[in-house]
Structures are given as structure tokens and as C-alpha cells.
């Protein structure tokens, strides 16, 4: 696998721009209605460049998840064990984030409902997700 050439700084900037007024945004093509993340300047569906940025409603589901027991990322060594999930927004785009507010991440289930929880962490606003039950006491 080749590493991404972009440094941490540009990654933080990209993530910052995906968040607006505490909301996670995604992109939608005006020509073909394709929706996606991460940020691009052309639509990966039709290669057009007439693109809108929309707010995600915050409802999502868990496609898959892993639990780190080893510090592959040194900055997260103190967070072990932590959970990284592959999340699908209700609007379609998928992204990687942390699943928080879970006592035993081995008990998560694929396709379970998640809710967006924008959180300020290490001086950056990040879009995190939590099981809908953990947040609301019930499924939406």
C-alpha cells in the first residue's frame, strides 16, 4: 500500500471544510445527482464540476468496524482500545470515523443505526458517530 502524500496539516484542513456550523457536509453533483465524500473538485460519477455542498442529516448506519489494540497511529496510543468504523450516511456517502459512547465495541452490529456527534478534539472539530440507542435511549 502506498501512503497518502498529503501531510497531517492538509488533512486537518480538508476535514475542517467538510464541517460547517457543526454539521457534516457532503457533495452532490447538480448534473447527475451523485453524492459523495471525501471532497473532490469534479464529480466521480460524470466528471462534471457543478457541485453543491449539502448538510448531512446526521443519521447513518455502521457498515463495519475494527477495534485497535495496537498503536499503529502513535497519536492514538493513549486511546487504545478505540473503535474505527466505516459509516454510511443516510444520503449515501461513506466515511471513516470513530464510534464513541460504546461500552463493548465487540457487541456493535453491522447495519445498526448511528447518529452524528460533532466533537471538538485536539483543537479540531471532527464528525464522530455513536449508536442511536446510546444517544437517545431508543432507535430512531
Amino acid at each position: 500500500m502506498q501512503a497518502d502524500s498529503a501531510g497531517p496539516e492538509s488533512e486537518h484542513v480538508a476535514a475542517y471544510h467538510a464541517l460547517r456550523d457543526g454539521k457534516l457536509t457532503y457533495q452532490r453533483c447538480r448534473d447527475c445527482a451523485h453524492c459523495w465524500l471525501p471532497e473532490r473538485t469534479e464529480c466521480p460519477g460524470c466528471l462534471g464540476n457543478r457541485i453543491d455542498r449539502l448538510d448531512a442529516c446526521g443519521a447513518a448506519k455502521l457498515v463495519s468496524w475494527v477495534v485497535y489494540h495496537h498503536a499503529f497511529v502513535p497519536a492514538f496510543a493513549d486511546s487504545i482500545p478505540y473503535t474505527v468504523g466505516l459509516i454510511e450516511l443516510r444520503e449515501g456517502p461513506r466515511l471513516i470515523s470513530n464510534i464513541v459512547g460504546v461500552d463493548d465495541p465487540e457487541q456493535l452490529r453491522i447495519d445498526q443505526e448511528l447518529s452524528l456527534q460533532v466533537t471538538r478534539r485536539r483543537s479540531v472539530d471532527v464528525p464522530l458517530f455513536t449508536p442511536s440507542t446510546a444517544r437517545d435511549g431508543r432507535y430512531k
Binding site: 502506498q2 497518502d4 488533512e11 480538508a14 497511529v73 497519536a75 466515511l95 471513516i96
Partner: peptide, 28 residues
């Protein structure tokens, strides 16, 4: 070091290391 570098936006979420990608697939 190329094998353990965080990927893209993943640096914000501790998403790094080659095994984690395969673990994500395995879980599903």
C-alpha cells in the same frame, strides 16, 4: 514506516496500519 502511516483523513481518527483495512473487511 510506509506500512503504518495513517491514511488520508484517517489521521484524525487513528485509522492507520495495513492490518486495520483488512480487519474492516474481515468484520463485515
Amino acid at each position: 514506516s510506509v506500512y503504518s502511516r495513517a491514511r488520508g483523513e484517517g489521521a484524525l481518527f487513528g485509522w492507520g496500519g495495513v492490518p486495520a483495512g483488512y480487519a474492516m473487511v474481515a468484520r463485515r
